[in-house]
Computed example of a mutant assay.
Amino acid sequence: MVQAQFWYVYQTHCLLGKCKQPEKAYELFQAMIREGCVVNHESYTALLSAYGRSGLFDKAFTLLEEMKNNPDCQPDVHTYSILIKSCLQVFAFDKAQMLLSDMESLGVRPNTITYNTLIDAYGKAKMFAEMEATLVKMLSEKNCEPDVWTMNSTIRAFGSSGQIEMMEKCYEKLQSAGIEPTIMTFNILLDSYGKAGDYKKMSAVMEYMQAYHYSWTIVTYNVVIDAFGRAGDLRRMGYLFQLMQSERIKPSCVTLCSLVRAYGQAGKPEKIGGVLRFIENSDIKLDTVFFNCLADAYGRMGYFVEMKGVLKLMEQKGCKPDKITCRTMIKAYSSKGMTKHVKELQDLARSVERSEFQRKKPDF
């Protein structure tokens, strides 16, 4: 019996925690009951998590009521936090607020994870008033300390919307509260300053990271390479790309897209050729997004033979063109009145749309 109970609990938790298979999880839940296993708080919370992750909120809330009516399986902050997160992932803020009210009525206090989940969701939805109010409430709690996740979610929200001054104030306030920034924090600051065009402050962050020995990650390099590329500072962009390789950090398609985009905007086809030669001598797996950037760069420069050659290169690399590939090339040809080529691409676009429809068509 003990072994059976362990197996059912283990299987149920695996299904709930990692997979969106609420039906199978429910079957295991019922099997536990039939086998005489103790259905405890963890089992209920696990099943509720499966329903929440799958968007089956009616079933999740019904199960929550069952837990509330069972003295041995009362929902706790973990149960509520899981369900709140599921609601916020589909922007169901009304449901999340209802759960918070329910917690308060039961005397269940939110913890750091609950608040971080709310702050992150409000930030992504650009609901800044709600995000700030949640942060203020969190800071007022005695036993609910903000952490680096709080910091990162807050500064990302303000930084991504261009509210640099608010981002800096939050960063300073949370740092003065004893929260130590991580490499992710600095990546967010770099990205925010780069997109705001404040390269002086971006450089200051880079110098700070080097002075205090924060090891750069591929995300760090991608952020700064893209920022200097968009600014047209090809010399610094190229230096960072070389530095990245000397640090034995393998470039990704994101890195290569930034390089190609910058060289295309600067009208440097020979530099794009250099990127392609680098790719030939590497094992980097290219994707359709990269080829779309490449086609766009050649189209901007009026290199139509090379742009058309992108389709052949995609075929060689096992990448299929998508709607963006076709639109990018059609736009380039149209700008020069090359109607024959436009028609060819329009035929290709229709073929791509048919293929995508067939892939998405449900199998009855």
Rank of each mutant, 00 (worst) to 15 (best):
L234M: 15
F291H: 14
V305W: 01
A31W: 06
Y122F: 15
V275N: 02
K361Y: 06
Y199Q: 11
R230V: 01
S140G: 13
F291P: 03
T134F: 01
C144V: 14
Y221W: 13
T150K: 08
T255S: 15
K126H: 13
N143F: 07
H341P: 00
P146S: 10
M32I: 06
L88I: 04
T112I: 08
L88G: 05
R327H: 02
M202F: 07
V77W: 03
L28M: 14
Y221Q: 05
L311N: 03
K20A: 12
M131D: 03
F61H: 12
G159A: 06
V254T: 12
N187C: 14
S43V: 15
R34M: 09
V305I: 12
S351P: 01
K85Y: 05
M32L: 14
E306S: 11
K250W: 01
L56C: 11
S176E: 15
A129L: 11
G178L: 08
A157H: 04
N152E: 12
D198E: 13
R236E: 13
A50E: 04
Q5M: 11
F61M: 15
F158L: 04
A121M: 05
T339V: 09
K201N: 14
Q242L: 11
C37D: 03
K312Q: 11
Y263W: 13
N152I: 04
M103P: 02
Y239M: 12
S246E: 14
P269D: 09
T220C: 05
E104H: 06
W7G: 00
K18N: 11
M67R: 07
H78K: 12
N152P: 08
E356Y: 01
L139S: 07
M237F: 07
S246T: 10
P22K: 07
D233E: 14
S335M: 10
R53M: 11
N292Y: 04
A46I: 00
Y263N: 03
L100V: 05
R261H: 15
S203E: 15
S153T: 03
E207Q: 15
T79F: 00
I179M: 12
V38K: 10
I272H: 02
M32D: 00
I155A: 03
S334Q: 15
K59A: 10
V342D: 07
P146K: 11
G159P: 11
C319T: 03
Y333I: 00
D347E: 14
A4Q: 13
E35F: 08
K271T: 00
K24V: 00
V136M: 09
Y193P: 09
F357S: 11
S81R: 04
L294F: 05
F158N: 02
R156M: 07
I113H: 13
L99K: 06
K126L: 09
T114A: 08
G274I: 06
K312S: 13
E65V: 09
G337Y: 10
L16R: 05
Q245G: 06
K124T: 02
C293M: 10
Y199G: 00
M184F: 10
E27Q: 15
